[in-house]
């Protein structure tokens, strides 16, 4: 085999490896774009960890190392951006307002973007039983590094973060097959 030919072969192999490996990485990175259920900025992977999950979901699960909620437990829904698509940052205040899917209990928490251990501290999370609501049942939750009156969780000490809502004993898993998920809006309120 001539040298140019060998060179071309090596080049082709390198291109194939880059292309194949690169697309595989893109498909299972977190947050994975595949097999996802979206509502505004919110994303959930209801089939994560279930036996009917596809190979992509399994690869993503193995890579992130997350421990998903079972279908009998609930559904985790999270967002890394506000409703306009801008990444969540601790230098901004956010107002999370609206409704959640039907659930017996839900919690909202501020967590680091990808699986790292959380920054310890109080007031990182709030449960639906502690939420003050408007007469129509909707709620408003402020996510800010500084304490606020009313419903508030702290994003202090984190550069980038995500908001994770976990719905327990929820119909969200089955509802979504026919209707769209109703989740609160996340609106940036002023940044430093």
């Amino acid at each position: 085999m001539s040298v140019p030919r060998l060179f071309a072969l090596l080049l082709s192999m390198a291109a194939a490896i880059l292309l194949g490996g690169g697309t595989a990485y893109l498909a299972v990175r977190s947050p994975a774009p595949l097999d996802v259920l979206s509502a505004g900025p919110w994303k959930a992977w209801p089939r994560a960890g279930t036996a009917d999950g596809d190979p992509y979901s399994r690869a993503r699960l193995a890579r992130t190392g997350e421990i998903p909620l079972g279908s009998g437990e609930g559904l985790e829904i999270s967002t890394e951006t506000d409703s306009s698509g801008a990444p969540l940052r601790a230098r901004c205040d956010y107002r999370v307002a609206g409704q959640t899917p039907t659930a017996r209990l839900w919690t909202a928490a501020v967590e680091p973007p990808e699986g790292e251990p959380g920054v310890p501290g109080r007031a990182r999370a709030i449960g639906s039983d502690a939420i003050l609501r408007r007469p129509d049942g909707s709620f408003e939750l402020v996510v800010s590094p500084a304490p606020h009156a009313g419903n508030w969780i702290s994003s202090a000490g984190m550069d980038r973060f995500r908001i994770v809502m976990r719905l327990y004993d929820t119909t969200a898993r089955v509802d979504t097959a026919i209707a769209s998920l109703v989740m609160p809006d996340v609106v940036a309120e002023g940044c430093e």
Partner: peptide
Amino acid sequence: GLIVFSLN
């Protein structure tokens, strides 16, 4: 890491 069964 797959869920075999879950309940509440």
